[in-house]
């Protein structure tokens, strides 16, 4: 990790792959949080409630 990071250079955009990875990871994590089913919530049948 102490060696220089590779950089992506497109037009005026210059970003280290480390930062790019971090940002892509955030976007993926956000998308997963939106899509993944959340456990133990919304019971259509109230007798199904858990404590």
């Amino acid at each position: 990790m102490n060696s220089p990071a590779p950089f992506l250079h497109v037009g005026f955009i210059l970003i280290s792959l480390s930062n790019l990875f971090l940002i892509v990871f955030m976007l993926v994590l956000f998308a997963v949080a939106l899509i993944a089913p959340f456990p133990h919530r919304i019971r259509h049948d109230r007798s199904d409630r858990r404590d």
């Binding site: 956000f30 949080a33 939106l34 993944a36 959340f38 919530r41 919304i42």
Partner: peptide
């Protein structure tokens, strides 16, 4: 409330 049911709430 029942609508609190998404991983987005965990951040």
């Amino acid at each position: 409330p029942a609508y609190v049911g998404s991983w987005v709430y965990v951040f």
